[in-house]
Structures are given as structure tokens and as C-alpha cells.
């Protein structure tokens, strides 16, 4: 019984070995190349979006910083004027 199973097993494995090698259809290569190109473009455009977003963020940050600086400067001036006022009083 065991011997019979072994023979069957070998037959089955031989059958597997005889599975024909197939070639993918010719249309697959251009499809894959196109996807690869698309991937390059998508990566480039996502980098573009990231750099634009980073640029906008820097601009907003810079304008926010400069407005705070301006505000501080104007407060300093007020203090000076106030102090000056006191001196003259």
C-alpha cells in the first residue's frame, strides 16, 4: 500500500515537472513600462507638491515672524515714548 502511494507521488511530481513554461502575452511589457513611467511622474509630482507646500509653510512662518517682530518693535517704541513722557513730566 505504501509502495503504491510512493509511486503515485512520484508520478504526480513528474506531472508537475512537465507543466509547460508559458510566455506572458506581448502586451504586458508595454503595460508595465507605462506603469513604471507613470510611477516616475507621480513621484516627481508628489515631490513638487511637497516642495510647494514646504515653500508656502516657510512664507507663512516668515510673515508671521515678521509681524510679531513689528508688533514688538511698536510696543518698545510706545514704552520709550511713555518713559519719555514721564521724564518730561
Amino acid at each position: 500500500m505504501k509502495k503504491e502511494s510512493n509511486i503515485k507521488m512520484e508520478d504526480m511530481l513528474v506531472l508537475l515537472e512537465h507543466t509547460k513554461r508559458m510566455r506572458p502575452q506581448s502586451g504586458l511589457k508595454p503595460r508595465i513600462m507605462k506603469s513604471a513611467h507613470k510611477n516616475i511622474e507621480e513621484t516627481a509630482s508628489s515631490w513638487r507638491v511637497i516642495s510647494i507646500a514646504a515653500g508656502i509653510f516657510v512664507l507663512i512662518g516668515a510673515s508671521f515672524y515678521s509681524s510679531i517682530q513689528q508688533q514688538r518693535n511698536s510696543q518698545d517704541t510706545k514704552v520709550v515714548f511713555f518713559n519719555q513722557g514721564n521724564i518730561y513730566e
Binding site: M22, R23, P24, K29, I32, M33, A36, H37
Partner: peptide
């Protein structure tokens, strides 16, 4: 891109048959 095409040409049958 040429390197990629060479890899495709070398291995497409292997990949396809394993998947199949």
C-alpha cells in the same frame, strides 16, 4: 529605465510562470 527593461527581459517568463 534601460536597466529596468533589461531586468524585465531577463526575468519576465520566470515571474509569470511562478505566478501562474
Amino acid at each position: 529605465m534601460n536597466d529596468f527593461e533589461n531586468i524585465y527581459d531577463a526575468y519576465n517568463e520566470m515571474v509569470y510562470n511562478v505566478a501562474l
